[in-house]
Design a protein around this nucleic acid. Structure first.
Lengths: 197, 197
DNA sequence: CTATTTTGACCGACCATCGTTCAAGTATTA
DNA sequence: TAATACTTGAACGATGGTCGGTCAAAATAG
């Protein structure tokens, strides 16, 4: 036997090594050669770890999302009011701290829309269910405290799609100038309707 | 001077000539040569009318959207209840009749997310404001009839983003099985909350 | 009316680039 | 040394995009 490299770790290293480049120019505007150079490996080696350029963005999203999820989980526990928890949850779409992940996520969404990839589908599905679970727990708390009417559940789940859509619109149109205001406002309206008084 | 062709018309002809191919294989999986062949012109001629492949999808979206908007405008006037009008408005995202436009729209969204193009941004912005205008008119009617509370306005505007987001999710995850049910349900919930009784 | 020139449309051979492959090479361990 | 694991960049093939040239219609000149 000879060297055994940790394939998963090396994938991560390569992806992270090209992160800056992908953020700056977008995956469609950079070449495999540039990627190899940025990651400090040979062109052929890239193909030992990734089938194509798109998969590198996928790997990056997975890494950064996982990190993000950890932070978010900690963050959520800091808030006491249900409303603030929900707002904090969706802050991903506008806070400056998540700017990089957001850009990668944008590029990843473009990829997901134009190719069909089982792994990507499964990843996105898992994310969806994870977030749904979180949100359910948050809401449940509010309902048990008698802060909220039980009917809020499905409405709040709709905020997932709303926030995603608003984000896409903010990128693809000039019509949405203040995404945070848009999202927070929607959450406030729903909570105002659903608060037990 | 020599022959003068209607450039705009020819652009449309070329785009429509490749529609089937783009629907079948996706713009990323076909070559300019294939496009030229499908449109019955030489490869060089494609570049007389389009800067690149993406612009052909853009042209197609413009053509089909315009057509779609005409039909939708007529369709909307057929419904009497505000709720049905709103539901009909968003049926674009699931009805079988709009399947083709939806596929083109999907590919176009991927393009819009990965490149920045002034013209595309403006087009999407115009669409957004047009639909907003329509929706405002529909809602206004309901408010004046005393069917609806005035507060519904902003909530319904949120449905735009919701529907867009739910559509994206239905394509990029396995979590959304019945998009129509999801959209209709959200509309029903909002209307139930906002109906004057 | 005919010949000549001008012009716009059209085209496909050509070029440069880039994704992908693979045979050769290097490093490590037994 | 030999076997194994991994790396690599030259080479290949495909494709997006360019460009010089052709053609036919229209304008103009004679």
């Amino acid at each position: 036997m000879a060297i055994i490299v940790d394939k998963e770790q090396k994938k991560k290293d390569i992806a992270l090594g090209t992160k800056a480049l992908i953020l700056k120019d977008g995956i469609n505007n950079i070449t495999i050669s540039q990627i190899a150079k940025a990651a400090g490996i040979g062109k052929g080696t890239v193909y030992e770890y990734f089938k194509n350029k798109d998969e590198i963005v996928f790997e990056l999203v997975e890494i950064l999302m996982q990190e993000h999820n950890k932070q978010k989980e900690a963050e959520l526990s800091k808030f006491t009011s249900t409303r603030e928890k929900v707002k904090s949850f969706f802050s991903f779409f506008y806070i400056d701290a998540d700017k990089e992940l957001r850009e990668i996520y944008k590029q990843f969404t473009a990829i997901a829309l134009s190719s069909t990839n089982e792994d990507m589908l499964n990843f996105q599905t898992e994310c969806y269910f994870l977030y749904e679970k979180w949100m359910e727990a948050i809401i449940q708390e509010g309902i048990q405290n008698k802060e909220l009417k039980p009917e809020i559940k499905e409405l709040i789940m709709g905020i997932f799609a709303f926030a995603q859509g608003a984000f896409i619109m903010s990128v693809t149109t000039n019509a949405i100038t203040d995404l945070q205001q848009k999202i927070d406002n929607q959450i406030d309206m729903l909570f105002d309707l659903m608060e037990e008084r």
